[in-house]
Write a protein that binds this DNA or RNA. Structure first.
Length: 557
RNA sequence: CGGGGCGUAGCUCAGCCUGGUUAGAGUGCUGCCUUUGGGAGGCAGAAGUCGCGAGUUCGAAUCUCGCCGCCCCGACCA
């Protein structure tokens, strides 16, 4: 088909909106793809919706390819369903009432509704079932931000699997992993499957799909050799060995006046920060626990929460004084009454630790000899760490969460009574999984990974049009026949037939970012050639009009 | 929810501190002329309840109070 720029609603802007920071946010607005309606609320304009639909179609094809069945659930959902699952209490859930006072929920995903329908499954002979839909989700986000990256209303593809048992779930899970890999590859995205943080919920297995991007909200850690990737909260890097001072037979007190930071301590004693330890007193319920990590490490709150099995908070100054008889900068594990959880990095060797006496530290503190901790991985991985698989260098980069897949088990089927009759005549609970992808976030991530200072560089698979034809004034008829020829070959063509100067059209073409640009200028009349340019490469090549279609086909691959 | 910032023309902003004619610029938009391969130039023009509401004042975009909206950092993110 051929779209005419002169007729399209394609409001491009010379300048980005003042409040935009992320590249995808700026370029989507400048390029006339989207417009903001309110915080976290966006309208997709014609071009933006075309891209969104292309991504949706890719997802649909890959879901269909693994045998998932497309359905559509309503957005407005009776609150009773959410009372059954208990999710009604999640603060981000939008709630409303109808004129008769009946309570409804605007869902942030559709586990309840899908499980409601799964109650119609009666026999193992009907299993497995895997259903998906594209539907609008609502989330009362505390802070929407960065264009399409974090919004309050968005379309999500969410799929749900229903199996007889854990083995069946594993199979469904693997199918979706395969589909997700194919989806992101077709979208031209570099994305990594990583084990998601389990945090306070624990137990249930879940995986995130992270795309490295400048404006992400997650932090991805991956090995330079490509054999390891994880969310920084879950990553298990190997810390560098410390430069240890001489070993001592017993801890030795050393006066450290006014030293309350690791940097100051290392400076004063002329030692490596990695040869020190850092004590963080936290409170779990009523109990004070001392978390101990190496001086150059950061405590991972996620990991500590998992180890403790419940949420914690930092101890107050008062609690620290009454428990340790010293201030926060002078704490250590030796001689304390409370439980000590030490990071694995402190297992071997000797470290300088606080003496629990203001202005004093202890040299040569050794775990096992001088204190008895519980060891665990509670440090946050650093960019300088080594890969746990191959010892390679770890890279840390911000990333966008594109998708999330969960092994739900019977979390929903149990309260909903979603059961089936097995071969042995036993009534059993359906074992569920859920699998989400946000097409709009995917769209933003594609831009984050494919742009330059002039604009977007869409991969051909998701570009709003295959070819952008720039009409040099006076060449309208030549351009029309070029566009018709491309269209007849099944390509989607955007013709810039506006009454505007060439430079302006070029600038807009770069901004909008279709993969190929054809400039129809004077040469079309003189020697029958037009200029073909790949957006990502940026150089013109003269092509005869007769060869154009085949050359374009070739370039689009 | 805590901290910070912003709200004046479609967009980007100045003016506000120190109140005083018809509220400005750039860009965009409309018309005409010139120009026409990387956002060219000229002339003429349209366009703003100065976020909303109260108050102070002879007089408020400007000062005070309240509210609303938006952005950023943090908290939060089954």
């Amino acid at each position: 088909m051929v779209a005419r720029a002169s007729e399209l609603f394609l409001p491009t802007l010379r300048e980005p909106p003042a409040d935009a920071e992320a590249a995808s946010h700026k370029l989507l607005v400048r390029g006339g793809f989207i417009r903001q309606v309110g915080a976290g609320l966006w309208t997709f304009l014609p071009l933006g919706w075309r891209v969104h639909q292309k991504i949706v179609q890719i997802i649909r094809e890959e879901m269909d390819a693994i045998g998932d069945q497309e359905v559509l659930c309503p957005v407005l959902t009776p609150a009773e369903l959410w009372e059954l699952s208990g999710r009604i209490d999640i603060p981000e859930v939008f709630k409303l009432k109808d004129r008769n006072g009946r309570a409804f929920v605007l869902p942030l995903s559709h586990e309840e509704t899908m499980t409601f329908h799964a109650r119609e499954i009666q026999s193992y002979k009907q299993l497995p079932q895997r259903w998906y839909h594209f539907s609008t989700k609502e989330r009362d986000e505390p802070r929407p931000r960065a264009g399409l990256l974090r919004v309050r209303e968005f379309i999500m593809k969410d799929a749900y699997s229903f199996d007889r048992d854990a083995a069946g779930l594993d199979e469904s899970f693997q199918l979706h992993e395969r589909a997700y890999k194919a989806i992101f590859e077709r979208c031209g995205l570099e994305a990594y499957e990583v084990e998601a943080e389990s945090g306070i919920m624990g137990g249930r297995e879940s995986w995130d799909y992270l795309a490295p991007a400048e404006s992400g909200e997650n932090e991805l850690v991956r090995c330079e050799n490509g054999d390891y990737a994880a969310d920084i909260e879950a990553a298990e890097g190997i810390p560098r060995p410390p430069e240890s001072p001489p070993v001592l037979g017993a801890p030795e007190e050393v006066e450290t006046p006014d030293v309350t930071t690791i940097e100051a301590l290392a400076e004063l004693l002329k030692i490596d920060t990695a040869a020190t330890s850092k004590a963080m007193p936290v409170v779990v319920g009523e109990r004070v626990v001392l978390a101990l990590v190496r001086g150059d490490d950061r405590l991972s709150e996620e990991k500590l929460t998992t180890i403790l099995g419940s949420a914690f908070r930092p101890a107050t100054d008062g609690e620290i004084r009454s428990t340790f008889a010293a201030g926060g900068g002078s704490l250590g594990p030796v001689g304390v009454e409370v439980d000590v959880i030490a990071d694995n990095a402190l297992k071997d060797g000797q470290f300088v630790a606080g003496a629990n006496r203001d202005g004093w530290h202890l040299r040569g503190v050794e775990a096992g000899r001088d204190y008895e901790p519980r060891f665990a991985d509670i440090r946050q991985t650093n960019a300088g760490d080594r890969c746990p698989k191959c010892g390679g260098r770890l890279i840390a980069e911000t990333a966008i969460e594109l998708g999330h897949i969960f092994k739900l088990g019977t979390f929903y089927s149990e309260p909903f009574g979603a059961t089936y009759l097995d071969e042995d005549g036993q009534e059993k609970l359906l074992v569920m999984g859920s699998y989400g992808i946000g097409p709009a976030r995917t769209m933003a991530a594609i831009i984050e990974q494919h742009h330059d200072d002039k604009g977007i560089q869409w991969p051909a698979s998701v570009a709003p049009y295959d070819v952008h034809v720039v009409v040099i004034p006076g060449m309208e008829e030549h351009a029309q026949s070029v566009a018709d020829a491309l269209s007849a070959a099944g390509l989607d063509v955007l013709v810039d037939d506006r009454d505007a100067r060439a430079g302006e059209k070029f600038a807009d073409a770069d901004l909008i970012g279709c993969p190929l640009r054809v400039t129809v200028g004077r040469k079309a009349a003189e020697d029958g050639t037009v200029d073909l340019r790949e957006r990502a490469k940026g150089e013109d090549n003269a092509v005869s009009v007769g060869e154009l279609v085949s050359r374009v086909r070739e370039k689009l691959g």
